[in-house]
Design a protein around this nucleic acid. Structure first.
Lengths: 89, 89, 89, 89
DNA sequence: TCAGATAAAATCGCGC
DNA sequence: GCGCGATTTTATCTGA
């Protein structure tokens, strides 16, 4: 005899609401946490800006560090190639 | 006597590298944390999907709940005035 | 015999600069056009503002009308099922 | 004697709906036009991609061309400075 | 100049 | 693997 207690029942219109609710609430808790961290990051950028740093450039630097260094060199190379083709270098 | 210890030095090409490094490292730490939380969220969606839920709809539900919680009500009344003028209400 | 006339040459550092330039110039032309239209829109908002309308609210009204026009209805019914399960409907 | 026929009447809740409607409709027409142009641009990028170009780099190139050349050199310089401070150059 | 809103770009998830 | 749509991140713009 089939077990009916897990997950949505496919093929009809009912679903396991309690389980869904639990999933959603866990997600929402984590999303708040994520937002908190994101706000912390924003604060740091604001603080850095207050001390005269250029946050746009800082963001670029962070990205470059996160990126594989090889990959970055390759991108720069391709960009130079393109710019040269456009008569910009 | 001029203070030289804070932030980038404007007008020349030097800058307070140590301070910049500290900012960036704080940011990077937080970004890792954020990524960790984001991954946790992904895991939950995957788990839910494994139980037969439609994650696309779940995401929408989460979004709508967030929108409801946050504002969406405030300027709505002022807006109503305009929408009425447009024959939309 | 291999065809060499199309696209970038993979595996070496040359590329079809003329073709790239042509693409970019087409894009730039369209971007100017787009900017022109965007400026026209700005002018209208400015004109409306000059007549005493609240442009912030106007923008919101425009956005909502756009959202209404485009879907927002479609998956709403499926969504309702989930929201009901959450005790939200 | 005060003219009352133009613009919203400040201080009460009525407003010139017909005029507002006209503004909004002009805006919406232009927005559609703008979207059309934006789509054309996307098509070109897609076409370029189909010929093997890296569209991400292409976008960068377009931006650099649009930007004042001095400004670009300055940004690059600042970025190098920052990267050096981070031990990346 | 600044934050807050809008637009543009990049990334991720999913189905083909 | 690729496109396509959705989400997130970044950059630009606008009003105070």
């Amino acid at each position: 005899m089939a077990k009916q207690s897990e997950g949505p029942r496919i093929g009809d219109n009912s679903l396991n609401g309690g389980q869904l609710k639990a999933f959603i609430e866990r997600i929402e808790r984590l999303m708040e946490e994520k937002k908190g961290v994101a706000d912390d990051i924003k604060d740091i950028y604001a603080e850095a800006k207050g001390k005269g740093f250029d946050t746009k450039i800082m963001r670029k630097a962070v990205r470059i560090r996160a990126m594989n260094k090889e990959k970055w060199r390759k991108e720069e190379e391709t960009l130079d190639l393109y710019l040269a083709a456009l008569g910009l270098l």
